[in-house]
Simulated scan of single mutants.
Amino acid sequence: MTARTTHLDAGVRSALQAVSAAAKRGFDDPGLAELVQIRASQINHCAFCLDMHLAIARKHGVSERQLDLLSAWEEAEEVFDGRERAALALTEAVTVLTEGFVPDEVYEEAARHFDGARLAHLLALITAINSWNRLMVGRRIPPGSTEW
């Protein structure tokens, strides 16, 4: 597959990079941040982002077992703790939005595991990766590409 276009306005790129970086800093859990970004990227079929975030997750010590079972996290209760499961459920709810909103029970479960600031940063992180996914998939940026 070749990219449809590699043109991306520098201001857009910088703004999204800044949002992503701020969200990760405020969330303050690098491994879980990568799991969230990988899960959204799986749902959105973004090979570029999957390739990037899988490598980063490994650098942050995320286990191969978690990476292997991430797409079936709901069935892998012994692999993901309650905090991780709440973040992944929120990721799916924000990414898919099939009901037009995030269900109260999903949000409330996440709020039980994350204080207000971390929850806000988690929502920003989910929003940022969804934006990146759509930019990369829409332009068909292949995995490993250095021109995007």
Rank of each mutant, 00 (worst) to 15 (best):
E34Y: 10
D115K: 08
A22E: 09
G61A: 10
F114V: 15
T6C: 09
R139M: 15
A10F: 09
L35V: 14
S20D: 15
A3K: 00
P103F: 13
A87Q: 03
A57V: 13
A111F: 07
R140G: 05
F101A: 04
A89T: 08
P103H: 14
T146R: 06
G61I: 10
R39M: 14
M136W: 08
H45Q: 05
D115S: 03
M52A: 12
R65Q: 10
W73C: 08
R140N: 09
D51E: 13
A55I: 12
I43M: 02
R83A: 10
R112N: 06
C49K: 01
A87Y: 10
C46F: 07
I141R: 01
L35D: 00
I38F: 11
I43D: 03
D115C: 03
E77K: 06
L35M: 07
Y107Q: 04
Q66K: 12
V62P: 02
R4T: 12
A117E: 15
I43V: 14
L125N: 07
L70F: 04
S20L: 14
A55N: 00
N130D: 14
I141V: 13
G116C: 12
L122N: 06
S41W: 09
A124H: 04
L32C: 13
G138D: 12
T6F: 12
S20E: 07
G26Y: 09
R139L: 10
G138R: 12
A21T: 08
K24H: 05
A124Y: 14
L67D: 04
R4L: 03
E64G: 01
T127S: 06
N44Y: 02
P30V: 15
A93V: 11
L70D: 01
